[in-house]
C-alpha cells in the first residue's frame, strides 16, 4: 500500500482499534472558538441544537456574539444573511435534515444568489445519526447544496479534518455548507495533515481502481482498500470538498486506473457519485460504480448496524469491489 507521506496520516492507519476516534462535529465546535478568537466578525446562530452541533462551546466563550433563534431553520439562515450584510461572518448550525433540508429556498435566494458569506453547518448528516430514524438522516443534503451557484460544499473525513476545514472556511468568503456527523469515527488524519479548500487528497496510491469518498465513511473505504490489498490495487481519494470540485486530481486518477468507485453516506444520485460521474463523463469517460444509498430512505438502528445493513462497511465495500472485475477493464485505461 502506497500511503501518501505528504499528508502525514496517522501511524496506525489500518487499525481502527488503535486509532483514536472522534466526531466531526466536535472538531467543528473547537475550531469555531479558535476562529472566533482570531476574527471578531464571526458570529454564531443555532436553531435549538447548540450542544448537539457543538456550538455551545462558541456560545459559552462569546455569549454576546451568539443568537439562539429557536426551532426555526428558515429564520436561522435568513437572519444569518442579514448579519452577513452587516459585515459579520455568521456560522449557523442545525441538523442537516433541517438545514439545508427545510430552508433550501432561503439559502438559495438570500445567501447564494444574494452572495452573502454565510457558513451553514449541517450536523448529524447521513445514516449514522442512527436510532432517530430516516426523518433525521440527511441523505440528500450534498445534492441540494452543491447545485447552488456560489456555494461551496465541504465534507470533512474526521475530527481533525473538521477542525482544519472550519478554520479554512472561516477565512474564505464563499457561502459554504459544512457537512458533519454525530457519531465518532477513526481519526486517520493528523494536525499535520494539510487542508486546502477544493484540493482533493490522494490518501493511498493504487493502479487498478480509484475509490473516491468523503466524510467519516471514507475510513471504511480506506479499510476496504487495505482488505483488497493483495488482489486489487486501490487508489483512495478524499474528496473533502465536493464543490469546487477538484477536476484535475479526480481525472488524473481515473485516467491512471481506468475505473472508479464512489462511496458516500448519501444518495448515490446527486451526491459524490453524481458529482464524480458528471465530471468524468465530460473529461474522461470512465467505468463508475457508485456505493451509497440507492434511492431509498434509511431506518432506525445503531450507526454500525445501519452501515452494515446498507452494505457500507469496509467488508461489504471490499466484497462489492472484488466482484467488479476491474482487472478485465485495463484495456480501457486512458493513455494520457
Amino acid at each position: 500500500m502506497q500511503i501518501n507521506s505528504s499528508l502525514h496520516l496517522a501511524e496506525a492507519l489500518w487499525d481502527p482499534t488503535v486509532l483514536k476516534s472522534g466526531a466531526t462535529r466536535q472538531g467543528f465546535g473547537k475550531a469555531l472558538v479558535e476562529a472566533a478568537k482570531r476574527d471578531e466578525r464571526i458570529v454564531g446562530l443555532c436553531a435549538d441544537l447548540t450542544e448537539s452541533t457543538q456550538m455551545h462551546l462558541f456560545a459559552e466563550a462569546f455569549p454576546e456574539r451568539f443568537a439562539q433563534v429557536g426551532v426555526a431553520e428558515q429564520n436561522l439562515v435568513t437572519v444569518a444573511s442579514g448579519m452577513a450584510a452587516a459585515g459579520k461572518i455568521p456560522f449557523c448550525s442545525s441538523y442537516a435534515a433541517f438545514s439545508p433540508g427545510r430552508n433550501w429556498e432561503q439559502i438559495r435566494t438570500t445567501i447564494c444568489y444574494n452572495d452573502r458569506n454565510v457558513k451553514m453547518v449541517g450536523s448529524h448528516a447521513g445514516l449514522s445519526v442512527g436510532p432517530d430514524g430516516a426523518t433525521h438522516q440527511a441523505l440528500e443534503d450534498i445534492a441540494i447544496t452543491r447545485v447552488l451557484p456560489n456555494m461551496y460544499v465541504i465534507v470533512p473525513a474526521d475530527v481533525e479534518q473538521a477542525y482544519a476545514a472550519t478554520l479554512a472556511i472561516a477565512q474564505d468568503t464563499h457561502p459554504t455548507y459544512l457537512r458533519l456527523a454525530r457519531e465518532k469515527s477513526p481519526i486517520f488524519t493528523t494536525s499535520e495533515t494539510p487542508f486546502e479548500i477544493g484540493k482533493a487528497q490522494v490518501l493511498v496510491e493504487g493502479t487498478d481502481v480509484t475509490l473516491i469518498g468523503a466524510g467519516p465513511m471514507l475510513y471504511e473505504g480506506l479499510r476496504a482498500a487495505y482488505l483488497l490489498g493483495g488482489k486489487i490495487s486501490v487508489e483512495v481519494i478524499n474528496l473533502h470538498t465536493i464543490k469546487p470540485f477538484d477536476v484535475e486530481t479526480v481525472v488524473a486518477s481515473a485516467r491512471k486506473t481506468g475505473a472508479v468507485v464512489t462511496l458516500e453516506e448519501h444518495q448515490i444520485n446527486g451526491g459524490i457519485g453524481g458529482a464524480v460521474a458528471e465530471v468524468l463523463a465530460e473529461h474522461a469517460p470512465t467505468k463508475i460504480h457508485r456505493i451509497g444509498m440507492r434511492d431509498c430512505f434509511g431506518e432506525s438502528g445503531k450507526a454500525a448496524e445501519l452501515w452494515k445493513h446498507f452494505g457500507l462497511t469496509a467488508e461489504s465495500i471490499a466484497q462489492e469491489m472484488s466482484v467488479l472485475q476491474f482487472a478485465d477493464d485495463n484495456d480501457s485505461k486512458h493513455s494520457t
Binding site: A67, Q74, N75, T78, V79, A80, S81, G82, M83, A84, A85, A86, P90, Q106, T110
Partner: peptide, 8 residues
C-alpha cells in the same frame, strides 16, 4: 429575518 439580522 434579514432586517433582523442587520439590526442585531
Amino acid at each position: 429575518s434579514q432586517g433582523s439580522g442587520m439590526a442585531w
